[in-house]
Design a protein around this nucleic acid. Structure first.
Lengths: 196, 196, 196, 196
DNA sequence: AATTAATCGAGACGGTACGTCATGTCTTGAT
DNA sequence: ATCAAGACATGACGTACCGTCTCGATTAATT
């Protein structure tokens, strides 16, 4: 995976074209019928170019679906209550796009089945999300809203899991006021309780 | 799926043999490499017998993995705090077995990909869990621990999602004190906040 | 394929290095697994340099395998019987090297599949062989061994074909006395019959 | 490759359908562009059914192209001269069909590249052809045309090779009188010489 | 000396075929 | 009508190879 120093450099447009193709196909036909051949054809690219960059369909789709700005810089709303709602909104926007929503279950399954370091769903993604979360909690402590910092993984599981469960396990419709608003009060209460 | 009226009756031992084979294979090789052919071979059964009973691999595995006592009768511990921990323990025990843990992501993906009523195969499971949850909340109200009943789907998403995220998204190790104990305080706080 | 007039001249050593690489690989792994990439790598050469010189793998291998002295000057042994054995020995030495033996079937297939003039790349080789043959026959007439000159293509087919069939169709082991000696008497008889 | 005793028997029509498809494709597009996928599609058959019967494209095509009646029962014309012409005509008809002619070079190359017993081009085919030849020679001895039996492989190489060379090495047009008639006199002379 | 232009090694690119594998259906003969 | 065994169509996957192209660096002959 180390880029080459000599030889023809990788063409720039391919990554973008592939991402676009994947996202279109995910939306049109879902994960399972979003074929590697179809992706290559739609992107106007050979399969070799795909497998040169990613080592499986799962990695390919993952890379196409996770955009780096998924987790924006942690927005400070001034209150923990507001920050929690903001984090939830970010999580929702990362999980609820038409592509991600179609891709996530299949992706989870395929990444799990592969061995190697990529098997963990977006290590990087989760690490950044966790750091984000730690910062939000620390701000709340600085404001005096929390006495101590709760275990970050616990908070992480509650926030991420609640959104995921709503969308993919319970498969409830997103409520009119927005999913973040529906979940925020309870999860705010949870954090307060843990930070007491 | 209607059983036969005439002709040779279905052999009794098959269901059990298949369940056993599925569970062994799930544990040994995971969901994707737990092939229908492998299941049939291990169970000493023809594939036709499988598809006579279940209409897809996903249904087959689901049936083999979900034991009816997954959601026990709602145990009344006397306090909401205790009940929440008890529910969480039940959820964890339903999701954390060596088979379910391996099967769940693949199952989610395949059930989602199927169209028609099978897609909601987990419905029954979820409905019972939700009823269970409603009862726990109502007991808390009766005890005076809650002023009003929170939205059940919200609570459901938080409880189920937290466990799922811990196990399958964050893939954290189960903490020494047990997963339920780690998550219970926060989620108790969440319910209190929502029932205020 | 026209050489350049201006600019950097082609490096001299490349042709030799490539020929060597091809012959090694043919002997080691055969025609099909003698990849263009492998040739380039072994020769320490870029693929572009190969395709600048030859227009396909088949041409490349053909050039590497056919040495110009393949058909030596027609050696006059003094009798038709001797000349036939000599021609056969030449043909065998052209077809029976460890490289040619491995390359020939694949080469035949690929050259045939290409359209255009390359398909007849062996032409030159065959034309010279045929001229050689005509000379041998004419000498026999001059000696009075033959009354008239047989059809050269017929004689050609018999001589070349017998050797080829032995090596590549029947895949018989080369007999102890040498292939030429085993085939010469019969083919001498054939020519006598045709020249009667 | 042992046929099954239990389970669904192999469908009968498939072999015939595949042979037909292969022969059509060979004639239309040649060996290299006669794709396994195209064969399966044209025959209305899955690729698995093909690979269940033959272990590579080469074997598949070989089986489709060699028809069992390729070498008919050795026809006794009453004279060695006539028998030789008859054998040659048989060989030509086996090698000169529009399909075989297209397939042979590619087939030779691919079979050679594979390891294992099939690598030898139609062992069975050659064995039968050789037996045929031995019988022709023995008849000639019985008639008193030959004093002793020439080495069969040598005769085999001359007869088979001459035809093959004419068609695939020299790539001469088949002469008006027929290829067998053009080659028969010389090869008759060869056999006489060897049997003297 | 500066310019020009064809070459060099390296390696990415599009296309295309291969052979494998899994799903769900179907077909045997036997129970 | 069921059973075990196993063949069937479909269709995706990941690998391999070919011949082309693109990069930055060389290397001569021409200005």
């Amino acid at each position: 995976m180390t880029p080459n120093r000599r030889g023809r450099p990788r063409e720039q447009g391919i990554d973008a074209a592939v991402r676009a193709a994947v996202n279109e196909l995910l939306e049109e036909v879902g994960y399972q019928r979003c074929t590697v051949d179809a992706i290559a054809a739609r992107a106007g690219v050979g399969k070799a170019a795909l497998y040169r960059r990613w080592k499986s369909k799962a990695e390919l789709v993952f890379a196409a679906v996770v955009h780096d700005d998924a987790i924006a810089a942690p927005h400070d709303t001034g209150t923990l209550r507001g920050d929690v709602a903001s984090v939830l909104a970010d999580i929702q926007s990362a999980l609820d796009g038409p592509q991600v929503r179609n891709a996530l279950p299949g992706l989870l399954a395929d990444l799990r089945a592969e061995d190697g370091p990529t098997a963990r769903l977006g290590e990087l993604f989760l690490i950044r999300e966790r750091a984000y979360l730690a910062e939000v909690l620390d701000r709340a402590i600085a404001r005096g809203e929390l006495a101590r910092r709760p275990e970050v993984p616990v908070v992480h599981a509650m926030l991420l899991g609640s959104v995921f469960a709503w969308l993919h396990l319970l498969r409830e419709a997103v409520p009119p006021g927005g999913l973040a608003d529906a979940l925020a009060p309870g999860l705010y209460g949870a954090i307060i309780e843990l930070g007491r």
